[in-house]
Computed example of a mutant assay.
Amino acid sequence: MCEIFCFNSDKPKQINQCLECFYNHSEDHPHGWGLATMQSDEFVIDKEPVKASCSEHLKNILSNPVVGKNVFAHIRLATMGEIISPNCHPFIEADDNNRSWMLIHNGTIFNYPKLDKYKDKETGDTDSERILLYIIDEVNKFEKAKGGLSTIKERFNLLSELISDLSKNNKLNLMIYDGDLTYIHSNMRKTLYYLKNEDGFMVASTPLNDDEGWKEVEMNKLFGLIDGQIVFESEEHENEFIFTEEHLKYMEDHLKSLHGE
């Protein structure tokens, strides 16, 4: 599938070393890379449909300090969608109140009919982009019914419900950012870890160094982070994803189709 990474802190920090370690995993995730940082309240996004270790563009980025309070990264192993730039993460989209949302995803949606209508609306052809479009539609509906902007807590509660439902029979390791809150969710064992220290809060698909402080992200819950702290935690749902031979065959068949086999 993919690997995902985020850094969340109360002040900008340089994180080149962690990013270099993360992107070194691209041999097993060769179908694209992405990087998103916040600068002056806007996302700066770079991504390419090439292996991270082969990207001169990424090499140039990492040759300079990468500094930020909110930084997200992704390396892709395609389980749905072609190997093209529009299918690389992160995905970004604005809601009706001009709030920018970003999403990166490690997993696969095997069955969720509510996403089907977004196949004609998305830029690429991934289930991950459809998740973001669906979430934004639901936020728009909520704010229209309210007649005004949602609070941070209202958005967290709404996404808790949506992600709990989306996670049924689907692998849904997600990182989402709405300009205020970073959302973290995992529903598969030993696929997402976090490290909290004086620099901030770091989350990654696998530990990125030998620090003994890395811990597994608690499954089946949504967490909300601000300034390196967990400020919201949802109730636990029951939708743990367990990988089966059927899932493996699904992925293998898709990879063969990408290579024309």
Results as ranks from 00 to 15, higher is better:
C6G: 14
E261F: 02
I83S: 09
F110I: 05
W101E: 13
E56S: 12
I136V: 04
F232C: 06
E218Q: 08
E261K: 12
N173M: 04
I152F: 01
E261L: 12
V50N: 10
M1Y: 13
H57W: 06
T79Y: 05
D125E: 03
L62S: 15
N97H: 03
G34W: 04
C88R: 10
A78V: 04
I4K: 09
K215F: 11
I104C: 06
I15K: 09
L172E: 00
K117I: 04
E218W: 00
F156C: 08
K114L: 14
F5A: 00
E216R: 13
F243V: 09
M188V: 12
W214G: 13
K153L: 12
T182L: 14
R155C: 05
I83Y: 00
V231A: 14
C54L: 00
D125A: 12
V44K: 08
P65F: 09
I152E: 04
I184T: 11
D95V: 07
K11D: 09
E240M: 00
A73H: 10
P12E: 15
A145R: 15
F5T: 10
S26D: 03
H105S: 13
L149E: 01
K144H: 06
I135T: 06
L158A: 08
K11H: 08
I75D: 14
Q229A: 13
C6V: 09
I242G: 00
L174Q: 15
I163V: 10
N220R: 06
N70Y: 10
D10K: 09
L115F: 00
Y134S: 10
K146I: 02
V71M: 09
I230A: 12
E216A: 08
R130D: 08
L195E: 13
H185V: 11
V217R: 14
E252H: 06
M219F: 07
S128F: 03
D96A: 07
E93K: 05
H57Y: 11
C88W: 11
D116G: 04
K144C: 04
C54Y: 15
S9H: 02
I75L: 13
K146G: 08
E27T: 13
T37V: 08
D180N: 05
D210E: 15
K141I: 13
F110Y: 07
D10L: 07
H29S: 04
E143Q: 15
L172K: 07
E161L: 01
G148S: 01
F232S: 07
H29E: 11
E246L: 12
E235N: 03
E48L: 01
S55V: 06
N106S: 12
L132P: 03
C2P: 13
I176A: 00
W101P: 01
F201D: 01
A94C: 11
N8V: 15
E129W: 00
L62K: 14
E212N: 08
E82F: 00
N64V: 12
A36W: 02
L258W: 00
L208K: 05
E42L: 03
T182V: 10
S160E: 14
L192Q: 06
Y23S: 12
S164Y: 10
K196T: 14
E236M: 08
T191W: 00
F91C: 12
E236H: 10
L192I: 13
N239M: 07
H31R: 00
P90Q: 11
E48W: 03
F5E: 05
I131K: 12
I242V: 10
T191V: 04
P113Y: 11
L174P: 15
N239I: 07
G68K: 09
N140S: 04
E82C: 04
I136H: 03
N98L: 02
D137M: 03
P86T: 14
A94Y: 10
